[in-house]
């Protein structure tokens, strides 16, 4: 079953002339790890807001977990969890009070006036999650006293308290340090493995999408590409050979004679059209350096956007 099904979705904000989301369609299967990428202003947050029922659409159809976001909004809300791009914490409460409030809204447990009075399962869960993302020691401090990254981590803990079927993450790791990012992804992967949670991610850290099942690129409100990351890499980038020689001039003139393109950075970089092995065999100049560089998803993504007029 598709967990998320979007058909011809269009969104035009009030008092604007252009469509922020312009007739997009895609599907996310159950348990899939889905990356929704695109430059600033592409329409990612707009799409997520519609999928999570907090923004109305102009036209089109959106089904989440079998329920229509407009007609059965409440059933959809039962199924989803979300980390908004903009922080949505109550800054007057403590970190734990924010989580407690959330747990009560999602019917996990009643709201008691202090943490100690909350059910044991809740307390354990909060402490466990706080430990994982590393905010255990600020759990009882007011939000105002938490750093930006800590607030982000708190939102992550909050979104996972009710174990949603679909988790929407709108740039979840913005502002997190490298260690926290890694432990967060470890945890999200663990949750995915254990519960088969579908994850819908937008991020500007393209490396986070390296292991996803599907990448959709949205640009100017339209889906520009929707495939696995491997296909994206193959389609838009080749492997590169990075070589150097004690006699660099001899090397470059040989490359020219062979009719091969190259660029010189620190090393001589030769884009690989076919097999790397064949290319290496052609070069006779003694090499002092030989490396093969695999394209990253980020390279492919940037290349893709350049070709499709997204960014300069």
């Amino acid at each position: 079953m598709s967990m998320v099904e979007v058909k011809n979705l269009i969104k035009q904000y009030k008092h604007t002339k252009i469509r922020s989301v312009d007739d997009i369609s895609f599907k996310v299967e159950e348990g899939e790890f889905f990356a929704f990428l695109g430059p600033n202003g592409a329409g990612k947050t707009t799409t997520i807001s519609i999928l999570s029922t907090i923004l109305s659409k102009t036209s089109g159809e959106v089904i989440i977990s079998g329920f229509d976001v407009q007609k059965e909004a409440r059933k959809v809300r039962e199924k989803i969890g979300i980390i908004f791009q903009k922080p949505s914490l109550d800054v007057h409460l403590t970190a734990e009070q924010n989580i407690r409030f959330h747990a009560a809204l999602y019917g996990m447990c009643g709201y008691r006036l202090s943490f100690k009075l909350m059910p044991k399962a809740y307390r354990q869960k909060v402490l466990e999650l706080a430990e994982i993302v590393g905010i255990a020691d600020v759990l009882f401090k007011p939000i105002k006293k938490l750093s930006g990254g800590m607030q982000r981590k708190l939102e992550i803990v909050r979104s996972l308290i009710h174990m949603p079927d679909v988790l929407f993450l709108d740039e979840p790791t913005q502002g997190l340090d490298a260690v926290s990012r890694r432990s967060l992804w470890e945890y999200i992967n663990q949750v995915r493995n254990q519960f088969g949670t579908t994850v819908f991610l937008t991020t500007h850290y393209i490396d986070e999408a390296e292991n996803v099942d599907k990448v959709c690129v949205i640009n100017h409100g339209k889906i520009a590409f929707c495939q696995s990351p491997e296909v994206m890499k193959q389609n838009f980038l080749r492997q590169e050979l990075m070589v150097d020689s004690v006699n660099r001039e001899q090397l470059t003139s040989e490359l020219s004679d062979l009719g091969l393109d190259y660029t010189i950075n620190r090393l001589v970089v030769v884009p690989c059209q076919g097999s790397v092995q064949e290319l290496i065999l052609k070069i006779k100049t003694p090499l002092s350096v030989l490396k093969i560089s695999e394209p990253t998803l980020e390279d492919a993504y940037v290349e893709f956007l350049k070709k499709n007029g997204g960014i300069e």
Binding site: S52, P87, H102, Y106, G107
Partner: peptide
Amino acid sequence: NFNEEMLVSP
């Protein structure tokens, strides 16, 4: 933005 947290809840 705390509104959104409330409005997205079931």
